[in-house]
Amino acid sequence: MQAVSLIMIQPFFIMKNKQSIGVFDSGYGGLTVFKSIIGKLPEYNYIYFGDNARAPYGDHSFETIYQYTLECVEWLFAQGCPLVILACNTASAKALRSIQQNVLPYKYPNHRVLGVIRPTAEIVGEYTQTKRIGVMGTRGTINSESYLMEINKFFPGVQIAQQSCPMWVPLIENNEHLSPGADYFVEKYVNELLSKDSNIDCIVLACTHYPLLVPKIREILPPEINLLGQSDIVADSLVLYLQNHPELESQIAKEGKTAFFTSGDQEDFNSSASIFFGEEIVAIRASPY
């Protein structure tokens, strides 16, 4: 596999002088979104940061997730990212609104932070005829009820059933997601969701890890049920956002360069990240705290 083009020499100073779009996730899942973003917007400079040392975020409290997310966002700001995408459903659910409302206006008025939940909520109603939607995610995302609130803003007539899938992320991160051993847990959570509402005709995969399970999920789902991932949705939303905000878009360097950082072990990140990104990755270790 061909390695991704990286900014490897004095990355902190280069990034400060060449502003980039920041992409954050608690670990690896955001790489599925990042891959789609680069595919649609290859001309920009990017920094990806995975907080692998403190992952997973899913079972932490709101306060802890907010603090972790804010530290990582501010680190990306310091590297020269005026725009940061939270490519993580848990961070989007539990930290995004507080950062947008309580931090940016007072501390970073010229910076923006976007998430993955709203772009999905804005269009999900177009994929259902029965007006019955299922949402599958981590415990943290499901318990936050963020999808319930956001989808009801845009499609108030839709009924939503939710299902947490606590075993899916560990299966994926241990590269067992396509093994026969994963079949039980994929079938278990899908059937539990459908048992809550037999009229569901659209399911949102509300975790950026879950696209890797699509082949197995599709084996179980009736063919008439739409399966909605977030990667292309978020990428398309970013395309429109940059078109509508030229004052921000003009700040981003257009050299087509990408740098990867992790708070965890570099070798572990490089080994696992390629599962999500589809290409070899060479990351730099950095700490936002």
Rank of each mutant, 00 (worst) to 15 (best):
Pro119Leu: 11
Ser237Asn: 14
Ile220Ser: 01
Val23Tyr: 07
Ser263Val: 07
Ser61Arg: 00
Arg285Ile: 11
Val169Trp: 05
Pro288Lys: 06
Trp75Met: 15
Thr262Pro: 07
Asp265Trp: 10
Gln162Trp: 01
Glu176Asp: 12
Gly181Asp: 13
Val135Trp: 02
Leu240Pro: 01
Ile133Val: 11
Leu242Phe: 12
His209Thr: 11
Val84Arg: 06
Tyr28Cys: 06
Ile85Pro: 02
Ile38Lys: 08
Leu242Lys: 02
Ser287Ile: 09
Arg285Ala: 13
Leu205Asp: 13
Glu219Asp: 15
Arg139Trp: 05
Gly115Ala: 02
Asp236Lys: 11
Glu74Phe: 04
Ser272Lys: 15
Gln79Val: 01
His177Leu: 12
Arg97Lys: 15
Ser144Ala: 09
Ala3Met: 13
Tyr106Ala: 12
Leu114Arg: 06
Val135Phe: 01
Ile7Asp: 14
Ser92Trp: 00
Ser274Met: 14
Ile9Pro: 00
Tyr127Trp: 10
Leu194Pro: 00
Arg97Ala: 11
Thr138Phe: 01
Asn191Gly: 06
Ile9Ala: 12
Val4Met: 14
Val124Glu: 03
Trp168Asn: 10
Lys131Gln: 15
Ile281His: 09
Met136Glu: 07
Ala259Cys: 14
Pro211Arg: 09
His111Cys: 15
Asp183Phe: 08
Asn52Val: 12
Gly140Met: 02
Asn110Gln: 15
Phe276Leu: 09
Asn152Cys: 13
Glu145Thr: 12
Pro82Leu: 01
Leu193Asn: 01
Phe277Asn: 04
Arg132Met: 05
Gln162Arg: 04
Tyr189Leu: 00
Pro288Asn: 07
Glu267Ile: 11
Ile200Thr: 00
Phe277Gln: 02
Asn89Glu: 01
Val204Ile: 15
Leu31Met: 07
Val135Gly: 03
Pro105Phe: 07
Gly80Cys: 05
Pro156Thr: 11
Asn152Trp: 13
Asn143Cys: 05
Ile9Tyr: 12
Ser61Leu: 06
Gln251Gly: 03
Glu63Tyr: 00
Glu255Tyr: 07
Thr138Leu: 02
Glu192Arg: 13
Gly29Trp: 08
Val234Asn: 06
Ile99Asp: 01
Leu228Asp: 05
Ser92Asp: 01
Ile200Tyr: 02
Asp51Met: 03
Val23Cys: 13
Glu176Gln: 14
Ala235Thr: 05
Gln129Asp: 13
Thr141Glu: 06
Phe155Trp: 13
Phe62Val: 04
Gln266Tyr: 09
Tyr127Glu: 06
Asp183Val: 12
Asp197Ile: 00
Ser274Cys: 13
Ser146Tyr: 03
Gln162Pro: 02
Leu240Cys: 10
Ile142His: 04
His60Asp: 03
